[in-house]
Computed example of a mutant assay.
Amino acid sequence: MKNQRTAILASIVLAGGAAFTALAPAAQAATFNPCSAANHGRLKYSTGSASHVVFAISSGYSSNHVVVTECVKQGKSWKKVSATTGRAGTKAFARPGAKREGDGKSPTGSFTLTDAFGLGNPGTKLTYRTLHSSGDCWGSTPGESHYNDYYAAAKCRSTDEDLSATARRGPYHQAVVINYNRPNPKRGYGSAIFFHVGGVTPTAGCISIKESKLRAIMRTLVPYDRMIMGPKSALFRS
């Protein structure tokens, strides 16, 4: 997904971000409470063994504006911790099972969170990798080694993610790995789906929010918490 990510970043710089300044405040956007809906049996996806679930919910498959809500398990119920606005892929969301490499869409579904990376651990209990000034890569080339996984190299393949370079630009100051199509990836089904810094402009398939909000969520996460993401109608029963 490297080429598409580069194109998106370039378009953001040229536009100065002006096209995306009309985001509604989180307090207005977060009218739907996914924590309460999960308590009432409306959630279509499993929360597994998670003690925290982060929902990224759009209004439909064509929208890349999302509300990101964190819920904490208290006894047998979920309680809302926080909510904020964010962005998904430039082409919004793929239907379940339809995500493919380079399509600009975010996957729909429920995915575990086990790993994170960035410029320094903000206090998360996820397995954390501190990035170097160079040499940190993520495989995004179907058929090549380390597809949808981290690797270190003197120079990343041109079709892979240069995590170090993206961290210097800002998006990967902090990031949580969303375990879509991993740890046993299917060739061409998509890679490098992260929960990272941003929240104003669309991504190449990741979920992004403001850095302060992301850091706060990361501090609560433990291995095998979950990200449940997609359009509201795909995630919840009416």
Score class of each variant (00 low, 15 high):
169 R>F: 11
74 Q>W: 03
156 C>M: 13
106 S>I: 06
196 H>S: 07
26 A>I: 03
121 N>W: 02
62 S>P: 06
191 S>C: 06
37 A>P: 10
102 G>N: 13
234 A>S: 11
167 A>P: 08
154 A>V: 15
96 P>V: 09
113 L>P: 04
10 A>F: 12
42 R>W: 09
43 L>E: 09
178 I>E: 08
179 N>V: 01
83 A>E: 03
124 T>V: 03
38 A>T: 03
5 R>L: 14
84 T>K: 03
96 P>A: 13
169 R>P: 02
181 N>T: 08
14 L>E: 15
37 A>G: 11
67 V>E: 02
225 D>P: 04
218 M>K: 05
105 K>W: 10
74 Q>P: 02
42 R>K: 15
122 P>K: 01
215 R>T: 11
100 R>Q: 15
215 R>F: 01
10 A>Y: 14
8 I>R: 14
196 H>G: 14
45 Y>D: 11
131 L>Y: 04
67 V>T: 10
30 A>N: 07
117 F>E: 05
5 R>M: 12
176 V>A: 12
24 A>T: 00
197 V>G: 00
46 S>V: 07
206 C>W: 02
176 V>M: 03
161 E>F: 10
41 G>S: 09
164 S>M: 12
9 L>V: 00
216 A>V: 00
158 S>C: 05
91 K>I: 05
3 N>P: 15
221 L>D: 13
56 A>W: 10
50 A>F: 00
39 N>S: 10
175 A>S: 14
68 V>K: 07
215 R>D: 13
32 F>C: 00
70 E>K: 06
94 A>E: 14
212 S>H: 03
215 R>A: 10
226 R>K: 11
34 P>K: 09
173 H>Y: 07
214 L>Y: 00
39 N>C: 13
164 S>A: 15
89 G>I: 07
123 G>K: 02
208 S>R: 02
97 G>N: 07
24 A>E: 01
61 Y>P: 11
43 L>C: 13
53 V>K: 01
95 R>T: 15
148 N>M: 06
109 G>M: 01
186 K>L: 14
100 R>I: 15
210 K>H: 05
206 C>N: 08
152 A>Q: 15
205 G>K: 09
18 A>M: 11
154 A>S: 15
48 G>R: 12
7 A>Q: 15
76 K>E: 09
145 S>Y: 14
134 S>W: 04
23 L>T: 08
33 N>I: 07
40 H>M: 12
232 K>Y: 01
83 A>F: 08
147 Y>Q: 11
7 A>Y: 07
112 T>Y: 09
195 F>A: 05
31 T>E: 00
90 T>L: 12
145 S>P: 07
114 T>M: 08
209 I>Q: 07
216 A>I: 00
27 A>W: 00
95 R>F: 07
9 L>H: 05
123 G>Q: 03
225 D>T: 04
211 E>T: 04
130 T>L: 01
225 D>I: 08
211 E>K: 01
101 E>P: 13
